[in-house]
């Protein structure tokens, strides 16, 4: 049995949607950050699937760039979250809202 391209795209779209709504609805900064990674991995899955089914290497190559960039983003992002935690002793979004009108 072969899995069709549409099945991969469905899973990828689902992961992307879960990640998107996670970013919007969750309250914990770390969980939000994981949801962002989920979105990037949904993109990676779609890229690899397209690349495999359309016989084009570009998608596979792009995945490496995305993984490298995501790693850099996590390095900077976690540093900011840790620094903020030291300062405020919380990672919950609603308690991190000092910048207001």
């Amino acid at each position: 049995m072969t899995v069709s391209l549409n099945a991969y795209l469905f899973v990828s779209g689902l992961l992307f949607a879960i990640g998107f709504f996670g970013v919007i609805l969750r309250r914990n900064t770390l969980v939000i950050y994981m949801c962002l990674e989920l979105m990037l991995n949904a993109v990676n899955l779609a890229l690899v699937a397209f690349s495999r089914y359309h016989n084009s290497m570009d998608g596979n190559l792009f995945v490496f760039f995305i993984i490298a960039v995501a790693a850099a983003e996590v390095a900077v992002g976690l540093a900011i979250i840790v620094a903020l935690y030291r300062k405020r002793q919380t990672v919950m979004v609603e308690e991190l809202a000092e910048l207001r009108n």
Partner: peptide
């Protein structure tokens, strides 16, 4: 804390 919050 403001700069960090803006960064986040």
């Amino acid at each position: 804390a403001f700069s960090l919050e803006a960064g986040l």
